[in-house]
């Protein structure tokens, strides 16, 4: 279950906890996050500090979420562990997603908009 915290500035912080986002877990992961989006949250911070691996299906799911949010929504990622950061660099997804060290810096970046 993904832990959701609503911040005062209208941003939802999502923490999926310790997991691997793979073919086995990605569909449920995506469904839960899209549930939050459908609940009215369009500014999301996804805290990946507990995620130690993302495979190709997992990356596809993240891009799917980004596309679903569309131009009016906002998604920031933070807390990337090394294997996840390496994967993002290899696939250049670090240019597609907004990536921050932690929730505080991601939230501050949202405030400035």
């Amino acid at each position: 279950m993904i832990d959701v915290v609503q911040l005062d500035n209208g941003t939802a912080v999502l923490d999926p906890g310790d997991m691997r986002i793979t073919a086995a877990t990605a569909p449920k992961f995506k469904e839960e996050i899209l549930g939050v989006v459908e609940g009215g949250s369009h500014r999301l911070i996804l805290d990946l500090k507990g995620v130690n691996f993302i495979d190709s299906t997992g990356l596809g799911a993240l891009v799917g979420i980004l596309k679903r949010l569309g131009p009016r929504g906002d998604l920031a990622l933070c807390g990337l562990q090394r294997p996840v950061a390496t994967m993002f660099a290899l696939t250049r997804m670090d240019r597609i997603f907004r990536i921050f060290p932690d929730v505080a810096s991601a939230s501050a970046a949202f405030e400035q908009v």
Binding site: A89, R92, M93
Partner: peptide
């Protein structure tokens, strides 16, 4: 140096 995958975007 890496690069975007094909058919993702």
């Amino acid at each position: 140096e890496g690069g975007m995958p094909v058919a993702l975007l």
